[in-house]
Amino acid sequence: MATATKVILVTGASSGFGRLTARTLARHGHVVIAGMRATRDRNAGAVRELEELAAAESLSLSAVDLDVQSPSSADAAIAEIAARHDRLDVVVHNAGHMVLGPTEAFTPEQLAAVYDVNVLGTQRVNRAALPILRRQGSGLLVWVGSSSTRGGHPPFLAPYFAAKAAMDALAESYAAELIRFGIGTTIVVPGAFTSGTNHFAHAGRPDDEATAAAYDTHYGEIRASIDQRLADLVPPDADVQSVADEIARVVGLPDDRRPFRTHVDPSRDGSEVVSVVADRIRVEFYRRLGIEELLPSHAAL
């Protein structure tokens, strides 16, 4: 069963989903550590805001310096959390980076960098955190995915969507490999929230500007407006806070009631329907392999 108070690490918590999630989980009574890079310089303001909120509302909310692209940083952050709290119950894999532009115009090194943040970053944190969770015989990994993984793939966002799809596949395999240790998995799938986050504002651009410009004749208008087209799919009353609220809900559920995958998609882009089919295929495949005991036993699947 779920305990009332958990020690939770949220990666990428300086802004967007991560910042909202860290605050929301703390307000639900959990001990929350907001992982973010450059806590002494670029994100020093975010740390101050977090400390001020914690003091004003008597929250157990603090920051830790965590760069998911650095194994030594991940190791040090997890060690610091263990020293502070003697345990770690939940890791929210939220850190990520978006890029925007014609796929051809991104260098292979740029694609690798997007993959490094969105996929390898989770692996670095897992390798640091999972020994603690395995020793405890309990824990939860929450992976913040994307509706693009099971829904549509609009153009000019391919490196990001490809990385998110890889992260989703990694999460599925990890789920089966960790269930016998008492470690659960939930994949939270936000839709295309284009306000309340910094995804598009901070999106990277292709290094090969000449190739990118070659697309303008045929795709210039679409390329320039793809973020607005996505925004237009989202109802005006959609609130990005709903993603943080869903993560808090999932964390608070008993182990046998927690969903394997949950969607927060006000645009209703169809990815939830595709997910149901895909997860049923996964269940049947595990049954054919004779390893169905590695699936959660509850009806959430």
Rank of each mutant, 00 (worst) to 15 (best):
A2K: 15
V7H: 03
L9V: 11
G12F: 05
S15L: 05
F17T: 10
F17Y: 11
G18I: 13
R19M: 09
L20C: 02
T24G: 01
T24Q: 14
L25Y: 11
G29H: 12
V32N: 09
V32Y: 11
I33G: 02
A34Q: 04
M36I: 11
R37N: 01
R40A: 14
D41W: 03
N43Y: 02
A44K: 11
A46I: 05
R48P: 00
R48D: 13
E49C: 01
L50E: 06
A54N: 04
E57F: 07
E57D: 14
S60H: 12
S60C: 04
V64N: 12
V64L: 08
D67E: 08
D67C: 04
S70G: 02
S72M: 09
A76Y: 12
I78K: 02
E80M: 06
E80T: 15
I81A: 04
A83E: 15
L88P: 09
V90Q: 06
H93N: 13
H97M: 13
M98P: 00
L100G: 00
E104F: 06
E104M: 06
A105F: 04
T107W: 00
P108H: 01
P108E: 03
Q110N: 03
L111C: 14
A113G: 01
V114T: 11
V119S: 07
Q123R: 05
Q123C: 02
I132F: 08
I132K: 01
L133N: 05
L140K: 03
V142G: 03
W143S: 12
W143V: 14
V144D: 05
S146P: 02
S148T: 14
T149M: 03
R150N: 11
R150D: 06
P154F: 02
A158L: 10
Y160I: 00
F161G: 07
F161T: 06
D168I: 00
L170N: 10
L170C: 01
L170V: 10
A175K: 01
A176Y: 09
A176V: 12
F181N: 08
G182I: 03
T186S: 07
G191C: 07
A192W: 10
A192D: 14
F193T: 08
G196D: 12
N198Q: 15
H199K: 03
H199N: 14
F200P: 00
A201V: 05
H202D: 13
G204P: 07
D207I: 09
D208M: 09
A210M: 03
A212N: 08
T217N: 08
H218L: 11
I222Y: 08
A224R: 15
Q228W: 03
A231P: 01
D232H: 01
V234G: 01
P236H: 09
A238I: 00
V240H: 04
V240E: 04
V243N: 07
A244H: 01
I247W: 01
A248I: 12
A248C: 06
V250P: 00
D255F: 10
R261I: 15
P266L: 09
R268W: 00
D269N: 08
G270M: 06
V274H: 08
V276E: 15
A278D: 12
D279V: 13
R280C: 04
I281V: 15
L289Q: 14
E293V: 06
L295E: 13
P296E: 06
A299I: 04
A299K: 13
